[in-house]
Structures are given as C-alpha cells and as structure tokens.
Nucleic acid binder design. Structure first.
Length: 483
RNA sequence: GGCGGUAUCGUCUAGAGGCCUAGGACGCGGCCCUCUCAAGGCUGUAACACGGGUUCGAAUCCCGUUACCGCUACCA
C-alpha cells in the first residue's frame, strides 16, 4: 500500500473558520496516521473574491493549530494552462464538445423551461453541430465554452464515510468545464489539480457529494485512476443552521485571541464527526489523536459547535499541559494586558509558576488566568462592589476583624502555610468565628474579589509586606465608608 | 420541482439483530469535599423523528412519510 496523499483546498475568501479547520485537521490526521502526505492547495481561481489577506489568515490558522503541510503550497490560479489543456484534451478524445450557446440565451431558455414546469437541462443542441462547422466558428473566433458529454448509465463510488453512493447520469446535464474566456469551472480545476498532485484520497465537506459524479466522469475521460473519496458532515451553529457570523466566533483566530489553546481546539474539533469508538477519554493529546484516527470512526451526521464543551476541553488541557509550555503563553498575555513585563515574570519563575498552578485549575481559558492574576501583579486592588457588600456588610465588624488579622499576621513567626494556618485559626477561634467569617473580609481586602485561591496560598503569593499593606488599605477604606 | 445525503439525551457521541429497563462526555440540578471560586468524587435529569414491514427478537435490516442539509450557474 503506497502512502496516501491528501490535500486541504480552501478558497481564500475569508478567515479560516472552524469547519474548514476541522476538514484540514481530518486530512492531516489521516495523512499522519498512515504515513502519507498532507498538501495545501489554495483555490484562488475566483479572483474577485480571493485576497492575499485571506490566504495569510488561512496559513496562520493552520500553523497555529499545528497542521503543517508537506511540500510547497499549490496555487490553483497558477495552473490555468493545464486546466484548459485538460479540457481541450477531452474535446479531442470526444468526451466533451464546444458549445456556442450564449449565457444570455441559456438564461432565457432556463427561465422558460422553469416557467413551464420541469427543470432545465441543457438540450445538447451544440453536440449536434457539424464538425467542420464547429471548426470554422472556432477559427473565426466565435466565443464558446467546453461542455462535458455526460454518458449513459450511472456514476458511483464507495465513500469512506457514506459507503456506496451513486447518481443516475440522466440527472446530470452536460456541464460546462471551460468558460468562453478559457478559464476552468470548479469541477475541472479541482479534478485536474487532484490528478496533478497525485491525490489518493479526497476528503472534504459533504456539500461536495453532488459534485463528485462530475469529477469522476472527468477522471475517466482523462484516463486517470480514481482517488478514494470521503465526505465529511458539516458543522452547524447552535441553532442547527450552517455556521455564519451570527454564531459568534467561527474563525479559529477568534478562539485563539480568547485564550483557547490550539491543542484543545484540535482535540475538540477531532470529536466533531469522528469518534474512536467505545469508551474512551475524550481529552487527548495530538499524538494520541494521530494514533487513534481512522476513517472507520468517521460519522455521517452534521454536528453543532458547542462552545461550552470547547471551553471545558480547554480547561482540561490547561491543567494537563506542562507548565513550561503554559508559562510563556500567559506571560505574553499578561504583558500585553499591561499587568507585568515579561522580564519581571521571567525573573521570578518559581513564584510565577506557583501562581499559575493555583490559577489554571480554576480557569477555562488563558484569558481567565490573566483576569485572575491581576490582584497578584498590580500594586493596588479595586474592590468588587458585590464582594465588598457581602463580606464587609457590617463595616465596623469587618474593620475590627481586619485589624486583628493584621496584628496576628504582622507578628506571625513564619510566613508559611502551617504557621499562617495556626495563627489565623486561633484568631478565628478566639473570636468565636468559623474561619470563613474571617477569610471572607480578608479575601476582599487582599484581592478585591469574592473568589480567589485558598487564603494561605493568597497570603504566601502576596508576601507579608503586600498583605499587610493591603489590609491597611482596606481598613482605611472601611473607615472612609463608615464616614 | 428533480437528484443526492442525513436522522440516538438540549449538545458531542457509544451502539454494527438479542449484552439496551440504551452507555459515556459537555451542560444543567443535587450531595460530598471545603475559607470563597474552581478542580475532584458521587449522583439526578434527559434520546432511539414517525409509520409500516422482515425476524422468535430491531436503535440496529428493508420500504414509505416527515424534517433538515447539499447540488441542480460560463460560483467555489
């Protein structure tokens, strides 16, 4: 069995969206799993809609996901001469013919047919033309397209996802393969390119199922061996409709900017339309995915992009990934948020790693970590009003508690977990309070928030100086509030 | 309209005739843990689109209906 060759063939007409990313991923996984090649082809034949910015966005999206392609990128637009030559070859070997019907005429006939019920199908009138006549009109420069002559019978294949699929040829009209300006129609270009790239497995969205018989006919007309086909189901938004801007972030770059990890995105996407089968741990590394991926696990049904589950998945990867990998990521985000400089954080790696360990377990995105890190990095804290309203309900009481805590902490012999716990617990006990009643007001004083890591962790991370400073500040704030 | 594809909890799915009074995961609810929030553990909620067959027996096979999606362009 020769190594398979697959390709991802996006049109550069926008960002890389999650559906395209999933298609690319499955192609890539299949190639990696079976020791084959994963190629990238940019289908830029539609010059009006294609942009360089989109092409770059697609590259960047694939790179971010870690889907490295083999060989040089193929630009479809660069092969126009071959597309045309292939179309003309089909005329030469009698599988296609010249058609002189104009677009306007066709349009008229189509409307007429539809008005009188019944779908319009090209009537092959130009296939009746005399050969000499055709040659003369072509020589005279009369505009013409090349139409494929659809044979009798039916056209089918064994789809890796759907099994046997076949179409009666009578339902397929003699379709155009080359426009009058000499440029190819999609099905011509794709087939010509897939042949040239020696693609052995065409894996793409199932919106191409109806195109497949036409492409198969072209392969045959050109005397080429057929590749295998696999048509993947689509990904929909949470309303069950096709993904669009309305559904929020459908661009992989948007998720990147919201703090989703590429490995989590890959993992999540891999489970949309594919399953290893049986019971398994859904959280998987890229290597595990490659090892497990197989066409037999491909599913037929469209799936909904569930952002909640993506976020959960991201949280799982956040906790499991090596700290050494997470650390620079967060440092970069912290720096661009203006909360710290990368140099400062790099200078105290142990402290920073301890912080990350505490925060990542309660975060779902990298951005969550950044938000939660604020009290540990900025000089002062702002008090969250709902948190303050609850924990400092009785200001006099809270003030007294914080003053007492300040005193205990200032005198605490050792600034470490055990000592802090002993001292603070005895303070609470002396006052006849549960520790919660003491830690609540302290938490707001120290972090400004209602939620944070455990009190002793917070104190240790902050250090004695900052902790005492914040308690003082909170006491002053409470004085102010009391009036 | 014609042709093609699809149909299991709200969502992702397991299931390839009896193992299914349908399993897992996300979400949601409860309990435990607990200084808060997470994480973790336990647990509850919730599905075979509908109708006919085939079979001793169907979520699984066949047919029809319905719904959704795609194609039906000198778009990709």
């Amino acid at each position: 069995m020769t190594p398979p060759r697959l390709r991802f063939a996006p049109s550069p007409t926008g960002y890389l969206h999650v559906g395209g990313a999933r298609t690319a991923l499955f192609n890539w996984l299949y190639a990696r799993r079976h020791g084959g090649q994963f190629l990238l082809r940019v289908e830029d034949t539609d010059k009006a809609r294609s942009t360089d910015a989109s092409t770059r966005a697609i590259f960047e999206g694939l790179e971010w996901l870690g889907l490295r392609w083999d060989e040089e990128v193929v630009y479809q637009g660069a092969s126009a001469a071959r597309h045309r030559a292939d179309a003309e070859r089909m005329v030469a070997n009698d599988h296609a013919y010249r058609c002189f019907c104009t677009a306007a005429d066709l349009d008229f006939r189509r409307k007429l047919a539809e008005a009188n019920e019944g779908a319009f199908k090209y009537d092959r009138r130009c296939d009746e033309l005399d050969r000499a006549d055709v040659a003369r009109r072509v020589a005279a420069g009369e505009p013409n397209v090349i139409r494929f002559r659809v044979p009798e019978g039916s056209t089918g294949w064994t789809d890796l996802v759907h099994g046997e699929i076949s179409f009666p040829n009578k339902d397929i009209e003699d379709f155009v393969v080359l426009r009058s300006d000499g440029t190819p129609i999609y099905n011509m270009a794709v087939t010509s390119d897939d042949i040239a790239m020696r693609i052995t497995l065409v894996m793409r969205g199932d919106d191409h199922i109806s195109n497949t018989p036409k492409q198969i006919m072209i392969y045959r007309a050109l005397g080429e061996a057929l590749p295998q086909f696999a048509h993947l189901p689509m990904i929909h938004g949470n309303d069950g409709k096709k993904l669009s801007k309305r559904h929020g972030a459908t661009a992989v770059a948007d998720w990147q900017h919201e703090g989703i990890l590429p490995q989590a995105m890959v993992n999540f996407l891999s489970l949309l339309g594919w399953s290893p089968g049986g019971e398994f741990d859904e959280v998987m590394s890229i290597d595990e995915l490659i090892a497990k991926f197989d066409a037999s696990g491909l599913r037929k049904t469209a799936s909904v992009f569930d952002t909640k589950k993506l976020e959960w998945m991201n949280g799982q990867h956040l906790v499991r990934m090596p700290l050494g990998e997470l650390s620079p990521l967060v440092r970069r985000k912290l720096a661009s948020a203006g909360l710290a400089t990368e140099a400062d954080l790099a200078a105290r790696p142990e402290w920073f790693n301890a912080l990350l360990e505490l925060l990542r377990v309660r975060a779902r995105t990298v951005d969550d970590i950044v938000r939660q890190a604020r009290p540990f990095l900025s000089d002062t804290v702002g008090y969250d009003e709902t948190a303050a309203a609850r924990a400092w309900k009785d200001t006099a009481d809270a003030r007294a508690l914080l003053a007492a805590a300040r005193e205990v902490l200032a005198a605490c012999a050792l600034w470490e977990h055990a000592a802090l716990e002993t001292d603070l617990k005895s303070l609470a006990e002396a006052r006849g309070l549960g520790v919660g009643k003491l830690f609540g007001p302290m938490r707001v004083a120290l972090t400004g928030e209602a939620n944070s890591p455990g009190m002793f962790d917070v104190l240790i991370l902050l250090g004695r100086d900052v902790a005492l400073f914040r308690l003082d500040a909170a006491i002053r704030e409470l004085d102010r509030r009391t009036g």
